[in-house]
Design a binder for these strands. Structure first.
Lengths: 228, 228
DNA sequence: TCAAAAAATTGATATATATCAATTTATTTA
DNA sequence: TAAATAAATTGATATATATCAATTTTTTGA
């Protein structure tokens, strides 16, 4: 794991793609080498200092908080090439969320102070960051608006459609446990299980473990391309 | 309404406070004069182009979207000195939300192209923008986490506490209609009305029209200072 | 590979809130 | 100021989903 890894980490992140070579070089210079993190590891927790920017090279990380009852509430997932903590980096001193790997993952990181310095010297990078923030904000607003009023069944259908759309295939493996999916949809695992059963008995989907096939989706849930 | 107004508009916005005089001068130069907008006016709508940044000098604006059933979903309110559309400015071509004045308001605006150019030349401004994004993102995440699991009664109490905390007085006038409040709390007006009745009969609050006085709040809802 | 732990499913029940409908109260505006 | 319109309240009912409890299935790790 030499400098090569760090370059790849930075290069592959969409948020950095297209930046000029010099900026990429500088980013690489201040980023750490890849770090291997086992599934189930907590990367940061609420209350800990926001001291670095994360770049995910491989794996999957869930970012969540604990509500008043100590219940986990998933905010978003970080997949390969995602960047995290950008928004907190300029705003907060401490994390308000928890981040935990759900798969074995490879992660690079950039120290806050180094990054902030580079951003201040590199307007194009600043604009990138703003775009990234804007997207995350829009996604969150969409998610709320989308899931806010829908019933369990519709949320699930929406989710399945989205996932199928993103992967552009009607058959796929759920990228999270049903427990996490229930959490993500803000319903209980029991309700999720019942909704799945219903969809199966109606012939809308086929399921075997986490393997799902969409068959006859109601017309009210058209493909939507991406998240927005 | 001459240039003076525009200066005030820009100067008073927290997001711009503390920037050096030269930057303020430039911001002022590219911002329009104050515009008077009557209550109930739609400022932008989903689908319209994101062509300017808004700075609210006086009044109140609600930003919302329409869900699948055509129901209004309030995302946030803009009060005096708030800045809006920053996040969309670098990310989206069109608005995904609606913005509508709920009071007569005074608004300045800055053309997107002018602003983007200035940001690219002014790293300190870029960092400001990032802080602002981060805050909005954090607020939204908090709001979800906070309201996501709570029941109607608790959401209402939470809201009343927050509002009292922000105004630092136990008696205040609801800054929105009960209709909008219900929407904001994601409950029906009927449920809100019943929850209010209950709190009154329990001696927790006193209400006359929109005038509310908090008396005996349960200890489980401590003052929280701000929004975060 | 087997035992232990965790996740998922299924059933019975309780409950918070939406919905529908009818008044009452407050706000516009002519 | 009165008439018209909108907002808020109150009641009766329906229902989606949480909760509690008991199995079954899957995953994990020794």
């Amino acid at each position: 794991m030499d400098e090569h890894s760090a370059i790849e980490c930075v290069r592959s992140a969409p948020i950095f793609v297209g930046l000029d070579d010099e900026t990429i070089r500088q980013l690489t210079a201040i980023s750490t080498h890849q770090e291997k993190i086992m599934a189930g590891t907590t990367i940061y927790r609420a209350g800990s200092a926001v001291d670095r920017l994360l770049v995910v090279d491989r794996g999957r990380i869930k970012v969540y908080r604990l509500d008043a009852n100590g219940q986990e509430q998933i905010l978003y997932f970080l997949d390969a090439h995602a960047v995290d903590s950008e928004s907190a980096l300029f705003t907060d001193v401490i994390h308000h969320n928890f981040a935990e790997t759900v798969e074995d993952s490879l992660v690079c990181s950039i120290r806050q102070s180094d990054f902030e310095q580079l951003v201040e010297q590199t307007p194009s990078l600043a604009v990138r960051m703003m775009r990234s923030f804007g997207k995350r904000l829009t996604d969150l607003e969409n998610r709320n608006a989308r899931y806010g009023t829908l019933m369990a069944r519709d949320r699930l259908l929406q989710y399945l459609e989205e996932t199928a759309g993103q992967l552009s295939q009607r058959q796929f493996k759920l990228p999270l446990s049903k427990r996490d999916l229930a959490n993500w949809l803000s319903i209980t695992p029991e309700t999720l299980s019942r909704q799945f059963s219903k969809l199966i008995s109606e012939g809308i989907i086929t399921m075997s473990g986490r393997e799902i096939t969409l068959s006859n989706l109601p017309a009210s849930f058209p493909d939507q391309g991406g998240t927005r």
